[in-house]
Amino acid sequence: MTTELTANGKPFVHHHGAHCETAVTSALFGNQGLDVSEPMIFGIGSGIFFGYLPMVKLVHLQVTAFRNKPGSVFRKAAKRLGANFVIKTYRDPQKGMDELRQVLKAGHIVGLATNLYWLPYVSERHRHNFGGHNIIVLRETEAGFRISDPTFDHPMDCSADGLERARFVPGPMNPRGFMYYTKSVQPHPDLRQACIKGMKNSCGLMLRIPLPIFGVRGMRFLAKKIIKSPDKLGFQEACRSLAGTVRWVEETGTGGAGFRYMYAAFMQEAAELFGSDELARLSRDMTAIGDTWREFSVTAARIIKQRDKEAETFAKAGGLILKCADREEAFFKELQKVVKKLEA
């Protein structure tokens, strides 16, 4: 935890977070005087999700999303907490950078969506072409910008060219200079109402979308694909696509399993807020679901490393996802019932 100064000389405390967007949102609110933890934002903004998008390919691999689309967590959380906020995208990079400078001068700190590959301070290990990484810009310096990237544990410097490039990478995953900040927040929002809204919305997203690629149905769809993959694609290629999936489970953002743990953390906080034992029990259920996802990734890692070929098969990996799907379905159905009993 380090303290930095923003453009108008206010102190800003850099918090290390698990996931970029929720941590950025939490920090933006925190800077305005509203202390909401990262898991709380994740729950209120209905971040938890599942989507398997076979038609969207990033470097030859299908996208498996474990959270809602970039930008939506901030928007939903800000709405539900009654904040006054601005969200903007740009066509013209120059205009985007100019407006960023103006907003910084006005004393706001600004959240940006950037492409992870082109951010100059990111090391080789984190570099991949992903256009939804969120960071906070604190102030302009002589060499560029001072940046608080909550994924990492200390603030960074970034050159102006590098930032412009990362904000406006041409191509299909273009963040288009996505920029957001809060003008003002309510100092004492109705947290309970916001939590209830967030939970209800999440239940709907996981259970009710009538397409086979989203929510619980999406998990089953993915599981079937994985089970069939070695016959269809051959062992090598199947391993590659499995590794792609595990990458989404473990790495991107905080990883699918990580999001499950974060949701469990949210349930824990909500349980305290409402004084509800049922939510505390659901939190433990969610932890178990996270563990199952993690078990899946360990199994997958063993398949890829070709350890113990007899026991670690694609069928087992797919079976674990099916298990996750069943458990999450039960979880969200239960949550639906519990939410109805909660009072704002």
Partner: peptide, 8 residues
Amino acid sequence: DGLRKGYY
């Protein structure tokens, strides 16, 4: 690289 991520 010393760039550490966080996990809950």
